[in-house]
Design a protein around this nucleic acid. Structure first.
Length: 566
RNA sequence: CGGGGUGUGGCGCAGUCGGCUAGCGCGCAGCGUUUGGGACGCUGAGGUCGGAGGUUCAAGUCCUCUCACCCCGACCA
């Protein structure tokens, strides 16, 4: 490609609100252009890289036994109602109606469609296992798109679905996918961590996320510095050591004039925060719920949502709290009637806590579970934090930010049951197929690659996904020998099937070199009067400082060697 | 959904106590001189100042409504 013809110019200035390196660089290189919030056009350079990423993914999916298909973006809402996931996605679902007023959705993912497809095509255990995948556009109406390509509303995703007759088959496919994913990231030059994850709106059981550790990541990873286990903060557990304050003592009221927060009450009574019980109020699917948790621990809303098996969860407003008859600042589970109580298991391992008194300016001392109150649900709903202890090895937990570049799930049978995806086993018995699903966001993966592979000059593409393999950069193109040499070298490269970006523009050296660094093609070949005087051209890797002089007639071989070496 | 901010040529911005023909830098086109790390001169093209309504002799500037985009929060009583 001649740079003079390339659609998408490099920019010297970019909007001030592009605050991540990958976003700035993709704008400056002219790879992407935003159309509206979370919706982008991909220009030629971006598309070339996206295709290379897709080809790596296809290769690994095919090796793992996948078959590529393509499923519709436009899907009947009815299908989503059958599985109940229209509600799970809620406002995240883009919906529309056709001319006959039929409700349609733009697919945020394809479990429903693929399960429906399997329902009509899988009949016997002989049809299993089956692995289907596609690389297809998804639409999700995110509350807040951000960070360039990191969180968008329209994006391409590789989604693979596995169908098995039994749990062993699922496990085998799941492990195969885990390995395939590791291969994909490695081939893309991206270091990833595999962590335990919550399965979220997709539903299901076991789930792992693939994380690129980066400060711009939106996810928090909780990781043990001793045993190296790691989990998304949404899912992570930590040790909640028992708080034993002696044998249970009689309940006792204590005046706490004006002291409402845990911080204030604990300070006033001169006790640690973990000797208190905290009350938090949520509205779960429209119903008021009362949460009790130890004062030093925060509620993990994802865990809470899972415990409640609810679809919608939000904090209760002040009005809702008072109309439920709760005394804000002194709320207590003790003596509470007619309200669902969910307690973190931390309240069961300790004695003589301080809790609210259900009267203004009064708290209760010596509250003990279950003597003084009981809960409708006892569960782990605690947020694990850096500094907590690891539940596996008692090591110290640390926290870091990560970009989620892949997510795999063991779905089980809830979708196949809802959509009638059954098979007849060897004994003639009808059974639901067991499913798994496996996703990678292609654009986000590209953003993560740029984020992890750049310097202050520009992108440093890994060879495997660079838009071009060689950046041919003649200087002083009005010099006839330079122009002739560059032209013939370009034609030779093309004839060899090598991907060359040829900067044929009559620009100054500074402009050309700066653009070369910005674009980040792995290998730069400079043709100039100075080097030609020595009968040479200059070859330089993007990730190295020094250039190397190579005799003109050896240049092609040298370039091939450098491109093909690892 | 709540809070804050911004909308002026392709990009980045100034102009906003109302006042003449809306300006600067980059980029773009032409000519010339240059050019081993973002050169320079001259000439030129390109804007219904997000949109609608209003106030006024006069609106990019003031008022009302509206749309879009960005940032923060989605948070513990």
């Amino acid at each position: 490609m001649r740079l003079s013809n390339l659609f998408g110019k490099t920019q010297r200035e970019i909007p001030a609100d592009a605050d991540t390196a990958n976003h700035r660089l993709m704008l400056r290189t002219g790879m992407i252009r935003q159309l509206t919030a979370g919706v982008y056009s991909y220009l030629p350079l971006a598309l070339r890289t996206l295709r290379k990423i897709e080809d790596i993914i296809r290769d690994e999916m095919d090796k793992a036994g996948g078959q590529e298909i393509s499923m519709p973006v436009l899907q009947p809402l009815e299908l989503w109602q059958k599985t109940g996931r229209d509600a799970a996605f809620g406002n995240g679902l883009f919906t529309l109606s056709d001319r006959r007023d039929r409700q349609l959705v733009l697919g945020p993912t394809h479990e429903e469609v693929v399960t429906d497809l399997a329902a009509s095509n899988v009949q016997s255990y002989r049809d299993l296992p089956l692995m289907l995948y596609q690389i297809q556009t998804k639409f999700r109406d995110e509350p807040r798109p951000r960070g360039g390509l990191v969180r968008v509303r329209e994006f391409k995703m590789k989604d693979m679905y596995s169908f098995d007759a039994d749990e062993e088959g699922l496990e085998k496919n799941y492990q195969a996918m885990l390995q395939a994913y590791k291969n994909i990231y490695e081939r893309c030059g991206l270091p990833v961590m595999v962590i335990e994850a919550d399965s979220g709106a997709i539903g299901g059981k076991d789930s792992n996320e693939f994380m690129v550790v980066s400060d711009i990541g939106e996810d928090e990873i909780i990781c043990c510095d001793k045993c190296n286990c790691a989990a998304n903060a949404e899912k992570a557990k930590s040790v909640k050591e028992s708080v034993y304050n002696g044998e249970p003592l009689p309940l006792e009221e204590v005046a706490t004039p004006g002291y409402k927060t845990i911080e204030d009450v604990a300070g006033f009574l001169k006790i640690p925060r973990n000797h208190t019980l905290k009350a938090v109020f949520y509205i779960a699917d429209g119903k008021f719920v009362f949460i009790v948790i130890r004062g030093d621990i925060e509620v993990n809303e994802i865990k809470l949502k899972n415990s409640l098996r609810c679809k919608d969860l939000r904090l209760a407003t002040d009005e809702e709290v008072s109309s439920a008859g709760i005394v804000a600042g002194s709320a207590s589970p003790v003596g509470l009637k007619g309200i669902k109580i969910i307690a973190d298991d931390s309240v069961t391992s300790g004695t003589n806590f301080v809790a609210g008194g259900n009267k203004a300016d009064v708290h209760l001392k010596n509250v003990n579970y279950p003597r003084d109150f009981t809960a409708d649900i006892i569960a782990d709903i605690a947020l694990a934090c850096a500094g907590n202890k690891c539940p596996n090895c008692n090591g110290k937990l640390t926290s870091r930010q990560g970009i989620e570049v892949g997510h795999i799930f063991k779905l089980g049978t809830f979708l196949s049951k809802a959509l009638g995806a059954n098979y007849i086993d060897a004994e003639g018995e009808l059974k639901p197929v067991i499913m798994g699903c496996y996703g990678i966001g292609i654009g986000r993966l590209m953003a993560a690659i740029v984020e992890m592979n750049h310097d202050d000059k520009g992108i440093i593409w890994p060879k495997s996904v660079a838009p071009y393999q060689v950046h041919l950069c003649p200087l002083f193109v009005e010099n006839e020998e330079v122009a002739a040499r560059a032209e013939s070298l370009y034609k030779e490269l093309e004839a060899e099937g090598l991907e060359a970006l040829y900067d044929d523009r009559n620009e100054s050296t500074g402009v050309k070199f700066n653009d070369a660094d910005l674009l980040g093609i792995p290998l730069r070949v400079t043709v100039s009067p100075r080097s030609l005087e020595k009968g040479c051209v200059e070859v330089k890797r993007r990730n190295e400082k020094k250039a190397e002089l190579v005799p003109v007639d050896e240049a092609l071989e040298k370039i091939k060697e450098l491109i093909l070496s690892s």
